[in-house]
Design a binder for these strands. Structure first.
Lengths: 265, 265
DNA sequence: CGCCACGTTGAATTCAGTCAAAGAGCGTGG
DNA sequence: CCACGCTCTTTGACTGAATTCAACGTGGCG
């Protein structure tokens, strides 16, 4: 059965900091103490409707927050209206561990769907870095992962053609959702208009449409009710020469794990 | 007078961690103690010739290092030889504070010129984060700045045309060099072939050539001996709608400075 | 001096953009 | 329940920015 977003079944509803915990454990196992600490971070919950700015360019960065439910994007607009989406924010994504150091936001964060976020205590977050090296390492890992995604995005826009770009994005989202347990059998929520997709991959909505049609007629994907089903994962990955190595779901190096374990003892 | 890189006058030769200190003080003033600490970080110095990989994709990340002199790039190659440069590394750039968490590099770092780097002690660096909140904040700031540059790079490749992209890059480099005291009167070292420039802005060398010619005939720039002189900074910035806000050279927010000062006392 | 990589220019090609119009889906309100 | 209006999707024809291919300059270095 297919549902439209926001999902109101509990598969996407992760109270406390569970979505963050889920994400961090993709990098390394966390102790019960680590998990308890994570659960003390959220201090309030906020909801935003779809197509709203959570925070806009030029504003002063407010609290660090965690996306719990829904989909959001980092984006920037040029003076003449051209728009570019830099990042997709999915449940479990932190935003932004140390942004508060800056005077003003250099980009906006906006919702694509209704969204639920948890504001995190800045003090306790700083405390985590001091007292929980394992969580701290996992948080750093998330920022490395984000950096790697930005790198790949640059490669896509700079050197990949339209089909490769779109296939690549769809693959990235598939594996990110999968890592959070939010993709089932190649299917996940994709609540984007073709204009928004174009704003992410640097193409016009018209061209996005044509590429998606080709993918559909080739039996690679199926789109319905703002859900995407990847029918042929291998095939789609091949179009984009996609390899999920850059997402670093393979965990921390043994050396780092040993080091952190020694600190524990 | 014009010199080719690497510069062997001492304007670009900053022993110890001076280049890092110079960069960090663009964000906030550092105490003598902070500076002394920074100077204890380098444990060895290495040199690489031009067009060499400092570390390649797939390798295990080694030590954290600081670029002291010369120019390097982060880049990725696709299977068929297409190449995309993600980042330019200039003197004072740190590379990469927490990359060692990962099992393998997802991109390469290569030199464009002969380069001098300082390997930093991982332990002391971790120590800095624990004991020197002010340096720690400044280091975080550098990673935010890098993230902002990646964002702008994505905007360029996704939504700016050829002239805008190239003008934007030249402006960014101008202000980055300027911040390090390595640009004088709009002139700085640009030891790139047009192919390499194209690999950064996602264009072919032929098209890069044509755009540069236009800029030259418009009296915007002048290139000679691998140096670039921006004759009309305003004009070049206008072509790209460039604003240097995103580089965040305006320092930390008063709130953060207060907070750090209170920690000090 | 001569090599070789890099820069420069022109002509033909192509991928993606633009413009325009028609169709589908969905919520609202009569 | 259907009609309306809105936004998003889809398709076709034409345009255009950037690529490709190919040739010729040029400047630095052994």
């Amino acid at each position: 059965m297919i549902r439209s977003t926001p999902q109101d079944d509990n598969s996407a509803f992760l109270p406390g900091a569970k979505s963050l915990a889920r994400k961090l454990t993709r990098f390394m196992p966390l102790t019960d103490d680590d998990l308890r600490m994570l659960d003390t971070l959220p201090i309030s919950e906020e909801r935003f409707p779809a197509d709203t700015d959570i925070i806009g360019e030029g504003m002063q960065p407010r609290s660090v927050f965690l996306l719990q439910e829904g989909m959001a994007v980092r984006y920037r607009c040029l003076a003449d209206g051209r728009r570019q989406i830099m990042t997709f924010l999915l449940p479990g994504d932190l935003c932004n561990p140390h942004m508060f150091l800056l005077k003003t936001m250099d980009h906006s964060i906006g919702t694509l769907t209704p969204v639920r976020i948890a504001a995190l205590s800045r003090e306790r977050l700083v405390g985590v870095f001091a007292t929980h090296p394992r969580v701290s390492a996992a948080l750093w890992w998330t920022s490395l992962q984000e950096q790697a995604m930005l790198h790949e995005h640059i490669v896509s826009l700079g050197r990949r053609d339209a089909k490769e770009r779109i296939a690549f994005l769809l693959c990235e989202l598939l594996w990110r959702y999968d890592a959070m347990g939010l993709a089932e059998d190649g299917m996940y929520s994709l609540p984007l208009t073709q204009t928004e997709l174009g704003d992410a991959v640097g193409l016009t909505p018209v061209h996005v449409n044509r590429v998606l049609r080709d993918f559909r007629t080739q039996g690679l994907i199926l789109m319905k009710h703002r859900m995407l089903k990847v029918l042929d994962v291998e095939g789609l990955q091949e179009v984009a020469s996609f390899s999920k190595d850059y997402l670093h779901f393979d965990g921390a190096s043994a050396e780092v794990l040993n080091y952190l374990n020694r600190l524990e003892a």
